[in-house]
Structure formats: structure tokens, C-alpha cells
Design a protein around this nucleic acid. Structure first.
Ligand code: FES
Ligand code: FES
Lengths: 144, 144
DNA sequence: TGAAAACAGTACCTGAATGGTCCTGATTGC
DNA sequence: GCAATCAGGACCATTCAGGTACTGTTTTCA
């Protein structure tokens, strides 16, 4: 179904909530879980991944929590997808993956998916998380 | 990984081979399997799906086989994806799917993925199978 | 008329990947 | 020192795609 993982959706939700934090203030994982209605472990997992990708910053300790490193408007959707779902590549039979496919020798589309990947990547990079959060200012305009 | 199913890749391969058939001539599923190097049951399955979607036409009988209903240049990639992977929708939390998600009430991106879906759909609809087969004439230009 | 070839449809099985949970450690503040 | 929180990893269950097999129907040829 060309679906991306549900965690990516959760990530967008969490990021949107994080935007509402005070300047310099942090939100805790349990707090975000309560605010979003998602499970605490799941939210924690998402935040860890995002932290690893540099999209959020975790502060430990008693008064710890998570904080956005950049405003959502400057955070393209591709970053979130790449952080959770991995690099954007439609098929396994792309560029360097040799040996995974049996039909490499006679395959006529060997490496031909690259333009498709680029097209999608480009379409997605024009959309920021802020566009999904509630301000569809330039969403869907990237492909025009 | 934002991957689409491997069957879609196979479909493109098979369709490309089908293009090489004689005018009015048909290619059999076993023949295509041998030409592509894929398993016969798998090729058969792909062809059945494509036939069901109207992209190819199957002729039964001893001299039966499959035939393209349209030239590859007039076959957008979205048709193939929609035929095999189903409709293009990034997440399950889109439009009408109610009840699948727990955070519907507080979810700020509820239904916000639609512009993303449109963007991808638009980027993909500009690419035909012929573009992937070996003539990247306007591939990747759809997003510009 | 019979047999063979090929598509059509369905049903089942297996494997991998996602989604989700939990546990243990490191760090910070009170 | 204690509590709270993040960090990291391991673990299990579920789901779904991928693949296979079977049966039925249609057409051609001997
Ligand atoms: S290389 Fe895998 S199907 Fe083309
Ligand atoms: S409705 Fe499911 S996460 Fe938003």
C-alpha cells in the first residue's frame, strides 16, 4: 500500500506537541504520552529515534525532557521518514543492493527506480512538519 | 523504508518484456518467467493481478498468453502500484479509516497526510513504465 | 472427441519485518 | 543519597507480504 510505518505518524504527532512547549522548556516522555494518548513506551521509543537523528534533544535528570532542535517549519518530512523508516528507497533492487534479487542479469529496470526515488524525495522534501501540523501553506505545491 | 512491494518491481519487469512481443502476439507466463528469470508461479500471479487491473489481457487456450492493452508509454506508474499495492496512501490514519488508531481524538495530524499523498501521487503519475524501461525521457522531471 | 496447453481463481503456508513492551544502565537535580 | 528522567538495547507477539500449490475453465490441435 506504499505505506510508511506507523511510528512515523506518531513521530509527527509527538513533534507537533513538542512545538507547544515553552521556549527552552522541555516536555517529558510520559507527559507527551499523556498528551497524545499514545503508549508511554512507544512515545519514548519514538523520541529516542528522533533524538538519535538529531531532530530533538534529550535532557536527562530530574527536570529533564525533550526539546526541539529546530522549528517544525524548518524540518522537512523527509528527515522524519529517514530517521524512522530509514532512507527513502522504493525497492531493494536499487543502486548498490547486489545479490538480493535473482533477476539481476536479465532485469531491464535494474537501477531504473532511481528517478522515481528522486521524484518522491523531492516531492516530500518540499513539505515540512509544520505543514502537516495545521498550516497547509505550501503543502502539495511541491510537485507543481 | 517507504518501500513498495517487490511484486510491483516484478510487474514492471514483466511489462517491459511484454512490450517486446509481436504485434498481436502473446507471451505465455512460463515464457515470461524464463525470460525474466523469475519463478513461474510468481510471474503468473503478477500477470493475474495486472490482468485484473486491466493493464494486460490474457488469452486462454493452447495458444494463449498475455498481451498489453496499452503501450507502456501510456501506462503511468501509479496504475501498476495501485494494481498491486493498492491505493496510494501513506498511512492508515487517513481519511476514512476510523477506529484503527487510538489517538484520533487528540491527534493533530488527523487527515493531514492527504497533501502528502497527493504530492507523491502527482510525482508518480508523471512517470510511465516506458520511462523505467530504458527511455528516461521525462523521468524525475515531474517534481519540478 | 479427447488430450494438452494455458489462463483464472482461490486457498494455504512460511518468513520477515513492524509494532509494542520491558529491563538495565547513565545522568541530572533535589 | 534518592528520585526522576533519558539512553540503549533486548525481547516477544502480531501482522502482512512473498511465495507455492491446487482446482477449474477455456481454447487449440491431433
Ligand atoms: S534487479 Fe531485482 S528485479 Fe530487477
Ligand atoms: S489518527 Fe492515528 S495517529 Fe493520528
Amino acid at each position: 500500500m506504499l505505506r510508511l510505518s506507523k511510528l512515523t505518524d506518531y513521530a509527527v504527532v509527538v513533534l507537533t506537541r513538542l512545538e507547544e512547549a515553552e521556549e527552552g522548556g522541555v516536555l517529558t516522555a510520559p507527559g507527551l504520552a499523556a498528551a497524545t494518548g499514545l503508549g508511554e513506551p512507544t512515545v519514548s521509543k519514538v523520541l529516542k529515534i528522533l533524538s538519535h537523528a538529531g531532530l530533538v534533544e534529550g535532557r536527562r535528570g530530574a527536570l529533564g525532557g525533550y526539546r526541539l532542535t529546530r522549528p517544525l517549519a524548518a524540518m522537512p518530512l523527509t528527515d522524519v521518514i529517514a530517521a524512522i523508516d530509514g532512507p527513502i528507497a522504493l525497492t531493494a533492487c536499487v543502486d548498490n543492493s547486489i545479490g538480493v534479487c535473482d533477476a539481476e542479469a536479465t532485469c531491464p529496470v535494474r537501477g531504473r527506480w532511481d528517478p522515481v526515488n528522486d521524484a518522491i524525495r523531492r516531492a516530500l522534501s518540499g513539505i515540512s512538519i509544520a505543514d502537516l501540523a495545521g498550516a497547509p501553506q505550501r503543502a502539495a505545491l511541491a510537485a507543481e
